[in-house]
């Protein structure tokens, strides 16, 4: 199944839209790994900057994706859903 360039791009964009929340969740769970390190203290300010930074990146990524994704996501753009 080979799609022309535009259709192919669009499919990869929907892939990106699917993967985004997963990446977001992983990034937001990262602080839990830091706190595993013995004796390490995370500052509220530093942690806050990290969390809000990830948050901002998610907003921007979602903005870019929502602009480019097919707006009325139907079967045609997306293939059969499972």
């Amino acid at each position: 199944m080979f799609l022309e360039r535009r259709g192919y791009r669009r499919r990869r964009l929907t892939d990106a839209a699917r993967v985004l929340p997963v990446i977001g969740a992983l990034l937001l769970l990262m602080p839990l790994l830091w706190s595993l390190a013995p004796g390490r203290v995370i500052g509220t300010a530093g942690g806050g900057i990290y969390v809000f930074g990830v948050w901002a990146v998610l907003v921007i990524a979602a903005f870019v994706l929502s602009r480019r994704l097919p707006l009325s996501g139907g079967r045609g753009e997306d293939g059969p859903e499972r």
């Binding site: 699917r18 929340p21 977001g24 942690g47 969390v51 948050w55 996501g73």
Partner: peptide, 19 residues
Amino acid sequence: LEFVTIYLGPTLVMVGWWW
């Protein structure tokens, strides 16, 4: 910082709207 969890959940849901 724990209060942000209340907003992070909905953020992930909205960002993952395609699902």
